[in-house]
Structure formats: structure tokens, C-alpha cells
Design a protein around this nucleic acid. Structure first.
Lengths: 180, 180
DNA sequence: CACCCTTGGTCTGTTCATTGAACCCACTAG
DNA sequence: CTAGTGGGTTCAATGAACAGACCAAGGGTG
């Protein structure tokens, strides 16, 4: 986060977390990664973030062990950014913050809904499945879909288009990845 | 948060939430409010934040409905900043992010531990009580205490001193409020 | 009354981060 | 050769954050 350029002062785990993920666009980038965004250009167009900032944030997240840079083709070497194990564990905080935002900072409720893929039930407040019970559902078993009550104002980048239908979390979005 | 000075672009509830609590010090201020900090000067010395920034953040959080400004004495009029109902609901995201930071961004584990006041059991990952079961424990029923494994490097402001012993969340810290 | 202390601020000048736009390079397809 | 795409870097201008001085209302002390 660079708070006072760094945060040595705070003994607190929260401060440490914010150093990693508290910077202006970081959490949005991580959210997009959960949505299946992997490529530089997809982050760029979906977030509308300046290129230099995206470069800096991605590198910082890789350095912090939240994302990892993996090649997805060799011919011209290209890589995508994937969530690491550490990154995947950000799903809980991210989901809860998102829910809070949907309740208190968005009129008309959230734009996306999240369900347990196995049974189709919408997740509860802490991200657990009310019918299957117990602990929070891991992101790989979650499907997102747009909230039908809020269909206006779609955006027209490849990522937004890929997300108009239901979509499993973490599954790469179909962007330029149309080989045939 | 003022992202690009504002965030109109993102349809997402997360972006809305970040507009409210994503700014540099906001979540730390909210965390301190959960710890029982209420006064301008206590926030100031505990966080080591510039006064002007603190003023701006407190006003923004009040405007967003996360905090409310309540008088605590009349003689010279003074007020404290208290969490509203909306603010209290930030406990979930805050706790989870803090846990994540304790696991992945702090060597040696967290500095504070949180237990269910009624039974003394430490909270689980989502903030629920493993013995009493069920849904997350509301902040008013939580006690915090320093992690005994990490007793070094205490700071010496009134807030840090008040938090060296176990302390119920939301209970005002004893700062200059020592009348005798 | 004169003086200083506390609380909760505001003002100012400097530094730092973010922004947007332009530029760059490797590679490929036509 | 030319244009296009993916993934960047560089740069000037802006805006926010910083540290520290200053301010104001009220109170306590002598």
C-alpha cells in the first residue's frame, strides 16, 4: 500500500494485509482474477486502469505471492497472471467486502450473484452454502451470474461480454482465446 | 476512494465498497473504532496519521454512514466517532482480511487474538465461535487480547497501552478519560 | 486577569503517487 | 513492406499525503 511510503508503525495484521492488497486498484485486479481474467490486456480494458499502474500493480502482486506469472503460449511468448494459493485465500475477505458494498454502498443491490456450483444455491453472507452447510465454499466451486434485476448499463469489453452469462469462478474467460 | 477521482466505471459492489473504505487510512480507522477508539487525538496518536488526513477520513466515513459523530461532553463541546450499524457490519470483511494478513503477510502470526466473550473460545476463520457454532459472532460479543507469542515492540500511545490487556471490542478505551 | 494546557482542528509548502497519452519492441499475418 | 497485437516503459501534469506551524475555545491555576 505504501502508507507513508510504508507502514512499519502498525503492529497489526490488517496493516500488513493492506500493504499487499490495499493499494488503489489491487483488490479490483484480484477480483478480476477470480472472475477468470488472466491477460494484461483484459485487465486493462475491463478495469479502465492506466497501463503503467496495471504493470506496477501486477508486479507488486506477483512479488507479494498473490499472483503468479505463467506462460500460456510460446510462439510469441505471452503470459497470464494466475492466483496462487495465497491469492485464492483472499476470496473470503473479497466476497464479504463485496457483500457489504452491495448492501450499503450500491442502490439496487449487487450486480453479480454467487452460487454453489454443486447445488445451485446462492451463497450466504460468509460465503457458505446454506443447503450444503458448513464452511465457506472454495472459489473453484462457485458460479457467478449477473443479477437479473440489474441488467442495464453493460460495458462492451471482452471481459464484460464474457460475463453476461453464468460463469464458474477461476475459469479463464474466452477473450481473444478463440483459436478456431 | 476516489479512483480516477471516482469509480463510476465499475458496476461492481466491490468497487462501491472500496470507494467508501478503500482509501489509504480508512480501514485502519475503522479497525481502531472496533478496538474502542473514539476520539480524534487517540486515532491521531495510535495511527500516526497526519491530522489533516485524519480530519478528511473521519468526515468521509461520517458522510458515508460508517461512523457517526456523537458528543461525549458538553462543558467544552467534544465529540467522539462511533460505528453506526452500517459500520458494525464491516467487522466481517475486516476480520477476514486481518486473518489473511496474519497468515500470509506477517511473519510470526497475528498480534491480536479474538475470542467469543461468552465462552472464551477463539474465533474461527470466518469469525464464528467453534464451540457455540453457527453464524459469525457480532463484534459486541468479542474480546481481543494481545498474542502472547508476540510481545515485543509495544508502542507507547494511550491506545496501545489500553490494549495490552484483554479488551472487549467496541468498549471505549480508557484514554485521558481518567478523572480521578 | 495572565498564563498555559488540552482538544480538535486549519493552513502551507514540499514530496510522492496516479493519471493519460505517447512511445517502444517483438512477433505475425497478409 | 505494412499493419496489427500483446505487453510493456517514459514523461509531464495533476492531485493527494505529509510534516509541521498555526489557530481557537474552554478550563485550571495563581
Amino acid at each position: 500500500m505504501a502508507l507513508g511510503t510504508d507502514y512499519e508503525l502498525q503492529d497489526c495484521a490488517l496493516a500488513r494485509a493492506l500493504e499487499v492488497v490495499g493499494e488503489r486498484w489491487s483488490l479490483l485486479i484480484v477480483r478480476d482474477a477470480f472472475y477468470g481474467v488472466q491477460r494484461f490486456n483484459d485487465f486493462l480494458t475491463h478495469l479502465g486502469i492506466p497501463r503503467a499502474v496495471l504493470t506496477a500493480r501486477l508486479n507488486a502482486l506477483v512479488a507479494a505471492g498473490v499472483l503468479s506469472k505463467e506462460p500460456y503460449q510460446q510462439a510469441p511468448l505471452r503470459h497470464g497472471y494466475l492466483l496462487t494459493e495465497t491469492g485464492l485465500e483472499l476470496w473470503g475477505p473479497l466476497y464479504q467486502l463485496s457483500r457489504w458494498g452491495g448492501r450499503h454502498a450500491t442502490e439496487g443491490g449487487p450486480h453479480h450473484l454467487f452460487a454453489h456450483a454443486a447445488c445451485g444455491t446462492d451463497l450466504d453472507l460468509v460465503g457458505a452454502c446454506p443447503t450444503c452447510g458448513g464452511s465457506p465454499v472454495p472459489p473453484a466451486e462457485i458460479t457467478m451470474r449477473p443479477n437479473p434485476a440489474r441488467s442495464g448499463s453493460r460495458r462492451e469489453d471482452p471481459v464484460s461480454r464474457a460475463l453476461v452469462g453464468p460463469h464458474p469462478l477461476l475459469e479463464p474467460i474466452a477473450s481473444a482465446a478463440v483459436p478456431a
